[in-house]
Design a protein around this nucleic acid. Sequence first.
DNA 1: GCCAGCCGGTTTTATAATGCAACCACACAA
DNA 2: TTGTGTGGTTGCATTATAAAACCGGCTGGC
Lengths: 155, 155
Amino acid sequence: MVKRTSFAGDACPIARSLEALGDWWSLLIIREALFGVRRFGEFQNKLGMAKNILAARLRSLVDHGILETAPASDGSAYQEYVLTPKGRGTFPILVALRQWSEEFDDRPEEIATMLVDREKGRPVKKLEMRAEDGRLLTPAETTLKPRPSSRRRSG
Amino acid sequence: MVKRTSFAGDACPIARSLEALGDWWSLLIIREALFGVRRFGEFQNKLGMAKNILAARLRSLVDHGILETAPASDGSAYQEYVLTPKGRGTFPILVALRQWSEEFDDRPEEIATMLVDREKGRPVKKLEMRAEDGRLLTPAETTLKPRPSSRRRSG
DNA sequence: GCCAGCCGGTTTTATAATGCAACCACACAA
DNA sequence: TTGTGTGGTTGCATTATAAAACCGGCTGGC
């Protein structure tokens, strides 16, 4: 088995996320979906990717509960792909990726768009990590703890 | 050319981030690096990945300015890989991935660790997106705007 | 009804990336 | 000089990706 090692059984939540999202196209498909794209052809057009790959990714995203197929919407007999809550929950990931580019990209002038506060039209602030009590946290002020692990451990 | 389509020239900052981070291993390597892992063998051990792939990824991360090689540190004549500021800047991305797993994973009981506030030992809050004036923003309260595009457009 | 054409894929075929194992170079020790 | 451990590179098999051809269901013209 030379398969592209699966992280599905990994205990690390980051690896588990990457299992679902960590290929070249999934996050871009989700990005389009967040913009309202729903139809196969529309994804294919915007992303310019091969149709077989798109089909495989859409299937995978559906399997992972990130997209679901809805039967109609514009009357045509085709189906569409819409985000589930789990899918919409990836929004912070996309924002984090975007902000990383904005902050560190070598050619920021090539970046075409900015994420702004719709009401004011001003750029959103960097994502903030806070403690339960509201204190702003830096990476150094955090650490990892083993989970309580509600039994289940033995096996 | 069947190459795995590069996003390097893409104007979308998300695609640009994925160009550097969007393969199966890069973010996991960075995760380990954030934990203090520096040596080739240590990465290889913790991640259990093929050495050639690890070498290729490390080289790519160095090329992208995410890691840099430092000549020594423990006296041995070998080198180590340490995160640059750009590399440490991926922290929010990893947190976002982690939190997405924590919130939506189908088998959350398999997740081994929690990110906590070091001082209090309590879980950190979900990443928050805020406007310049501090208002908490939902995805729907944001939108994309074309960048000012400081000339350079014509060509 | 019959052919043209679009949408939404699947199949086919070629190439690139991945993974494993073997190999190699260098440092250091004996 | 041989032996061991680290830090990789090289070969080769397997898998994923990509482009393009193909195909079925539906729509529309006639």
